[in-house]
């Protein structure tokens, strides 16, 4: 598992990368009440705002961590956005991406580095 400074986690699954937000981020956001997901097939560029999350408190964006294609989204979140709080590392995943080269993930933090970041 890799982590971004924006508190996303990235998990390699075959030739895809699954993306979600960390427990730290989910707790900080508060109760999630709405998730707007991208369409599958969308080509995204690193830094694109591709998911909108609304908690009871505020709206936040999830950025594309790397360039690639959105090949799957967790449609369950549309009806049950609370999954982001209940199981952020599992059932609360957002989307799966196909990358040209998984090696780009090497730039991201491992678990120890992320744990140090959030102190």
């Amino acid at each position: 598992m890799k982590y971004t400074k924006e508190h996303e986690w990235l998990r390699v699954e075959g030739d895809l990368v699954v993306v979600g937000i960390t427990e730290h981020a989910a707790t900080a956001l508060g109760d999630v009440v709405f998730v707007e997901l991208p369409e599958t097939g969308t080509m995204v560029t690193e830094g694109d705002e591709i998911v909108v999350i609304e908690s009871v408190k505020a709206a936040s964006d999830i950025l594309a961590p790397v360039d690639g294609e959105i090949v799957a989204v967790n449609a369950t979140l549309s009806d049950n956005p609370a999954l982001v709080n209940e199981d952020p590392l599992g059932a609360g995943w957002f989307f799966k991406m196909k990358l040209d080269d998984l090696a780009v993930l090497d730039q991201f933090m491992d678990e120890d580095e992320y744990t140090a970041l959030i102190g």
Binding site: G30, D31, V33, V56, K57, N85
Partner: peptide, 12 residues
């Protein structure tokens, strides 16, 4: 205090 550990939804 904007919220306690229960969170806004449960508190409401």
């Amino acid at each position: 205090p904007v919220q306690y550990p229960a969170g806004v939804m449960k508190e409401h």
